[in-house]
């Protein structure tokens, strides 16, 4: 679909492939996003997502084809067994020292992740999906467009260096837009990082901001709840998460504004290097 091609060109710098002949590469996922045929070409047109020849989701309105591609790709990474423990979390890093922000709904994970990346100078590993390699204990980056919802769109659009794609109105998540990951993050896409800090963010509308350390056991339970494949990974996944937390310190923070959140994260990283 043309909108998906534009999306790929804008966010990935990719051009549509000129035929398949002679290609000698290995693709992790064989994905297609197509216009629905028949009456759906004209009447409320739809976009359909395919992995191999299976269609794992119901179609969406055709103007949401590009977000459908992004959501579908996340789904592919979380559901196909690739040997990684997949956790619903944003991950950012300074060099090879990573900070994990597990994703509880409404915690402001993607806004905080964007602030750290565009204002705090952190490198983006992922805004949605932490991929922990059990063998090395490292988190593997896949810096892709950052998902923004509703009010966070205007907030992030004003950050220096942030480039946003088109806005998609009336999706199931409300209005959404995607922001390009910083070029340095993309350049370092092959450099994994070790998790040193885990921060569970909470957005508070009134009262004081706060920060308290959480035990590793409690963090384990909270992160496990946010894992997509811990059960499927069995003992390997269990041990990988234990090992990751062995080397990390975990905090819960409550913040009222972006500045406060950045300040709290800075403080955590300075005090527990």
């Amino acid at each position: 679909m043309p909108s998906v091609e534009e999306h790929l060109a804008f966010f990935y710098g990719a051009r549509p492939k000129e035929g398949q002949a002679g290609h000698d590469t290995f693709a992790d996922f064989d994905i297609g996003v197509f216009t629905a045929s028949g009456i759906r070409r004209f009447w409320r047109p739809q976009a359909r997502f395919f992995l191999d020849d299976a269609e794992p989701f119901l179609p969406l309105p055709a103007d949401q084809a590009a977000p459908l591609f992004e959501w579908g790709l996340n789904w592919c990474m979380a559901s196909r067994p690739l040997g990684y423990l997949a956790v619903h979390a944003a991950v950012v890093a300074r060099g090879d020292r990573a900070l994990l922000l597990p994703g509880f709904p409404g915690a402001g994970k993607s806004t905080l992740c964007s602030s750290l990346v565009f204002l705090g100078g952190w490198r983006l590993l992922s805004d949605e999906l932490a991929l922990l390699d059990p063998a090395s204990g490292l988190i593997h980056p896949h810096p892709r467009p950052i998902n923004l919802k509703n009010r966070s769109i205007d907030l992030v659009a004003a950050f220096p260096g942030a480039a946003l794609g088109p806005r998609y109105l009336d999706t199931r998540k409300g209005t959404i837009a995607l922001a390009t990951p910083p070029a340095e993050s993309v350049k370092a896409a092959e450099d994994p990082a070790r998790c040193l800090w885990v921060v569970f963010p909470t957005f508070v509308s009134d009262g004081e901001s706060w920060c308290e350390e959480v035990s590793r056991a409690e963090s384990f339970a909270l992160i496990a709840e946010q894992s997509f494949n811990k059960d499927r990974m069995g003992e390997v996944g269990f041990k990988a998460l234990c090992a990751m937390l062995e080397g990390a310190r975990c905090f819960q923070i409550g913040y009222r504004s972006t500045e406060e959140a950045l300040g709290l994260v800075d403080q955590i990283c300075r005090e527990s290097p």
Partner: peptide, 11 residues
């Protein structure tokens, strides 16, 4: 009834 998720995204 179609058992596929209506919301594409993370499982």
């Amino acid at each position: 009834k179609d058992s596929r998720p209506a919301e594409p995204g993370l499982p």
